[in-house]
Structure formats: structure tokens, C-alpha cells
């Protein structure tokens, strides 16, 4: 079992490296294609052509793009993420604080949305076809269809502007006590939970329904098992694989895809950092953010696969 998992992990890490390389390459050249010039942007409209050329040379921007890509890659190998073009600070320093913020938000959202999604998905499957099930379905479909900026804006409008319960901006810097923390996180977490749990609810419901239709579930029923026991002991363990995979997909959104929420609530996370970096053509920063999103996505999928294997004795005992 351990050998199997070790082999899988090694294989996945290998694939991860290749994916990262491809992503890095794609992002680098996509950024190259962006109009505008870093030196020009940094020096402003009134800069003399000589000053711009000088800065370009100083930043190695006059060298061919491919060479610069290799430099950057070489730096990455040695753990050097490079320096930001925009403010000449270490990219690692810039990201560190932001990443912590993002992870915090992702963590709180996960803690909040996963239990809710699981409960709704499982109960909807248990009472398939009932009014409750339909209500959950209608709810999830509408949440999927409503764009998150709409949810976020509405939340701000209702809770911050009219009711004045919560602050419109989520600045985590000056937090005193748990109550304040909750108040600050409430709106971004609710908005994000809306977005990520809809998919999880639907997938959980589908996976549990699939297993509820099997012969072994009917057998459990004919052994006199209660509905609760049938679902929790017989159906759920076999539905775990697909459920965890759906969760990994949804949760991976919490790092890279939260830009709208971060912008609306002015939350200092990585996604916002990346978008700011794009506007200043800050290549090293963009690259590093892209790498982080990619790694987090691949790691989540890997964890999901490992859980699926552990849940299946057929795979576990290979």
C-alpha cells in the first residue's frame, strides 16, 4: 500500500513539475504580448527616451525574451523568485504576507462551506425527489448562475450599507478579538462559500445517489438498517472518491479565482496582488503568483486522489 502511494505521489510530483514549466512558459510569453513597456510605465509619461532605454538596460529588458525566461527559471531553481519590477522588492517578501492572507481566507471558507455542502448534498440525496431536494437543487443552480460580483455587491449593499452590521472592507491588519475577526471575514467568506459550495453540493448529491442505487445498499436496507446507517455506513464511504475530487476542484478556486471577491472587499490576497502586477507588467511577480496557483491546484487534486485510494480497499490493497 505504501509503495503504491509513494509511486503515485512521485509520479504526480513529476507531472507537476512539467505542468509548472508549461504554465510558466505560457504565462511569461502571454505577459510579453501585453502592450506597454515596463520601463515606460515605471518612469511615467514625462520620461526621456534615454532614461527609458537606460532603465531597460538595467533591468535586462533589452535582452531576448527567451533568455530572460531562462534567467528567471534559473533563479527559480535556486529558490530566488526574483525582484519585482515595480518596486524592486523581493517577490518572495511581497507574496509571503499576501499568501498568508489568502490562505487564511481560503481556510475559513473551507471550514465554513465544506460541512454545509456535505450536509446539504447528502440530505438532498437521502430525500431524493422530495420538496427539500428540489429546494436544494433550485438553490444550487441559482447560485451557480449568479455571478459572484453580484452576490458580493448585494452583500455589501444589504449588510454594510443598509443594515450596517458589517464593514464593507475587509482589512485584516487591525483585528482585536474574535468578534471583530468574524465581522471582517463574514462577507467575503459568505460570498466565496456561495460560489464554491454549489458545485460541491451537486457533486455530493450525485455521487451519493449513485451509490444509493446499488445492490449493496438495497441489501443493507433488507438487513433492517436505518436510513441514516445506510447512507453514512454504506453509501458514503463508496461515494467518497468522487466527492473529494469535486471538493478539490471547488477549493482550488479559493486561491486563484477569488480576485473579484478580493477586489470588492479590498482584501489583500494573492489574487489581487497578481492583478495589480499585471497592470504594471511586473513579470516576476505575475510568474510567481501563477506558479502558486498551479501548485495549489495540483496539490489539492493529488490529495483528493490519495483520499480516494485510501477509501477504496480494492486500490488500497493492490
Amino acid at each position: 500500500m505504501n509503495a503504491l502511494i509513494a509511486r503515485l505521489v512521485a509520479k504526480r510530483l513529476g507531472i507537476m513539475l512539467i505542468s509548472l514549466l508549461i504554465v510558466a512558459f505560457a504565462v511569461f510569453f502571454a505577459t510579453e504580448l501585453l502592450p506597454g513597456d515596463v520601463a515606460q510605465i515605471l518612469l511615467g509619461q514625462s520620461a526621456t527616451p534615454e532614461a527609458v532605454a537606460g532603465l531597460r538596460k538595467a533591468m535586462h529588458l533589452d535582452q531576448p525574451a527567451f533568455l530572460r525566461f531562462l534567467y528567471w527559471l534559473g533563479g527559480l531553481m535556486t529558490g530566488d523568485l526574483g525582484r519585482s519590477y515595480a518596486n524592486n522588492r523581493e517577490v518572495a517578501d511581497l507574496i509571503a504576507g499576501r499568501l498568508a492572507n489568502s490562505l487564511e481566507l481560503a481556510f475559513v471558507t473551507t471550514l465554513f462551506s465544506v460541512p454545509i455542502a456535505l450536509t446539504l448534498g447528502i440530505t438532498a440525496a437521502m430525500f431524493r425527489g422530495s420538496t427539500y431536494d428540489r429546494l436544494v437543487s433550485v438553490f444550487t443552480v441559482s447560485v451557480i448562475s449568479i455571478p459572484e460580483f453580484m452576490v458580493a455587491t448585494l452583500a455589501v449593499l444589504v449588510f454594510a450599507v443598509y443594515l450596517k452590521w458589517l464593514p464593507a472592507l475587509s482589512v485584516a491588519n487591525d483585528v482585536h478579538g474574535l468578534g471583530e475577526l468574524l465581522r471582517i471575514y463574514a462577507m467575503p467568506v459568505i460570498t466565496l462559500s456561495f460560489v464554491v459550495s454549489a458545485q460541491m453540493i451537486r457533486m455530493t448529491r450525485a455521487a451519493v445517489i449513485d451509490t444509493l442505487d446499488t445492490a449493496y445498499v438495497e441489501m443493507a436496507l433488507l438487513k433492517g438498517a436505518s436510513r441514516r446507517r445506510i447512507v453514512l455506513k454504506h453509501a458514503l464511504p463508496n461515494a467518497l472518491g468522487p466527492i473529494v475530487n469535486a471538493m478539490a476542484l471547488s477549493l482550488s478556486y479559493l486561491l486563484g479565482g477569488v480576485i473579484i471577491v478580493e477586489t470588492i472587499f479590498n482584501y489583500p490576497g494573492v489574487a489581487k496582488l497578481m492583478v495589480d502586477a499585471v497592470s504594471t507588467r511586473d513579470l516576476p511577480l505575475i510568474q510567481s503568483c501563477a506558479m502558486i496557483f498551479c501548485v495549489s491546484y495540483l496539490l489539492l487534486i493529488l490529495i483528493a486522489d490519495l483520499v480516494a485510494i485510501m477509501a477504496n480497499p480494492r486500490l488500497r490493497n493492490q
Binding site: 449493496y216 441489501m219 443493507a220 433488507l222 438487513k223 433492517g224 454504506h234 477509501a311 480494492r314
Partner: peptide, 24 residues
């Protein structure tokens, strides 16, 4: 009915391969 199943009347399924839960 639940109390009856398994104690008074027991069921032997057509395909035992499908009637056993693969994860237990």
C-alpha cells in the same frame, strides 16, 4: 419493517458480488 428484516425474514441476493459493500 426494519425490526422484521434480518431477524424474522432474511434475504439472500441474486448477485452476492454486487450485494456486498466493496469498502467493508
Amino acid at each position: 419493517k426494519r425490526a422484521l428484516r434480518g431477524t424474522e425474514v432474511a434475504y439472500v441476493p441474486q448477485s452476492a458480488a454486487a450485494a456486498f459493500n466493496p469498502s467493508k
